[in-house]
Amino acid sequence: MAAKKKVITKDEIVSLYMDHVLEKDQKPKSVYHFAKENDFTEADFYSFFGTLEGLEKEIFRLFFENTVNLLHTNEEYQQYDMKNKMLSFYFTFFEVLTANRSYVLQTLKADRNPLKNFVQLTTLRESFKNYVSEILTDDYRLEQEKFQKFQEKAVQESAWLQLMLTIKFWMEDESAGFEKTDIFIEKSVNASFELMNVAPMNHLIDFGKFLFKEKIHSRQ
């Protein structure tokens, strides 16, 4: 009687894919070749991923997921304000990336067109934007409710741009222990939260409402 074939897990497929990219300096030609080479079926692959490109995107999302899981093992994290939560995320996320630096550099530099490489980060982008929305506190939220949705989207997009710039800086960082990236993170996050100070914006909105009302009254 033939031995029952081992059931492969999602994490094992991810690990095999990363090893393939690093050892062969290229992506698998197809799901068929990738599955056959590693002794599992295409059906096994498709039970977790729709395409190889989907697998690539999932790897970066898993980097994010591992980061958040690590953050929640720290009991003090829940008591942090938004800025310190963001700093904690950055330092932890880049520790995760550094542990997988060879893979990250290989895949994000594979094509001469950076936009094609960074398509892999689209799933990470959605997860990160949701994270930013979750940690957004009233200290950085406009009082005017009708502006809050617009503000939240602006904060999400600016935070994502900042993360992208930090990834680019880290990829080019040649300092020991990537200490320059640590400095970049601290300075850029501090600067972004200074810009997010909503008190002046609330005052400007109140002033604008005052001017609008005065203009309406003057016409009556």
Score class of each variant (00 low, 15 high):
Ala2Ser: 14
Ala3Cys: 00
Lys4Phe: 02
Thr9Cys: 02
Asp11Thr: 12
Glu12Ile: 02
Glu12His: 00
Ile13Ala: 04
Val14Thr: 12
Ser15Thr: 13
Ser15Leu: 05
Met18Gly: 05
Asp19His: 04
Asp19Leu: 02
Val21Asp: 06
Lys24Asn: 13
Lys24Val: 08
Lys27Phe: 09
Lys29His: 12
Ser30Gln: 05
Val31Thr: 05
Tyr32Leu: 07
Tyr32Trp: 01
His33Asn: 14
Phe34Val: 08
Lys36Thr: 11
Lys36Leu: 11
Glu37Phe: 08
Glu37Pro: 01
Thr41Gly: 07
Glu42Ser: 10
Tyr46Ser: 03
Phe48Leu: 07
Phe48Arg: 00
Phe49Val: 12
Thr51Trp: 08
Ile59Asn: 01
Phe60Cys: 05
Arg61Met: 10
Leu62Val: 00
Leu62Tyr: 00
Phe64Ile: 07
Asn69Leu: 00
Asn74Glu: 08
Tyr77Thr: 02
Gln78His: 07
Tyr80Asp: 03
Asp81Phe: 09
Met82Leu: 14
Asn84Val: 10
Asn84Tyr: 12
Asn84His: 13
Lys85Cys: 06
Met86Trp: 05
Ser88Phe: 03
Phe91Ala: 06
Phe91Trp: 05
Thr92Asn: 04
Val96Asn: 04
Leu97Lys: 03
Leu97Arg: 01
Leu97Val: 06
Thr98Asn: 15
Thr98Leu: 04
Gln106Val: 00
Thr107Ser: 04
Leu108Gly: 05
Lys109Asn: 15
Ala110Trp: 10
Asp111Gly: 05
Pro114Tyr: 09
Leu115Ser: 10
Phe118Tyr: 14
Arg125Glu: 14
Arg125Tyr: 10
Asn130Ser: 14
Tyr131Asn: 05
Val132Gln: 07
Glu134Phe: 14
Leu136Cys: 12
Thr137Pro: 02
Thr137Tyr: 04
Asp139Pro: 06
Asp139Glu: 15
Glu145Ser: 14
Glu145His: 12
Ala154Trp: 04
Glu157Ser: 15
Leu165Ile: 09
Lys168Trp: 01
Trp170Asn: 02
Met171Thr: 08
Glu172Met: 05
Glu174Lys: 14
Ser175His: 01
Phe178Lys: 07
Lys180Asp: 14
Ile183Ser: 03
Phe184Ala: 05
Val189Phe: 05
Glu194Ala: 08
Glu194Tyr: 01
Met196Gly: 15
Asn197Asp: 15
Val198Pro: 01
Asn202Ser: 08
Leu204Gly: 01
Phe207Ala: 14
Lys209Thr: 12
Phe210Val: 04
Phe210Arg: 06
Phe212Glu: 12
Lys215Thr: 15
Lys215Ala: 15
Ile216Arg: 09
His217Leu: 12
Ser218Met: 07
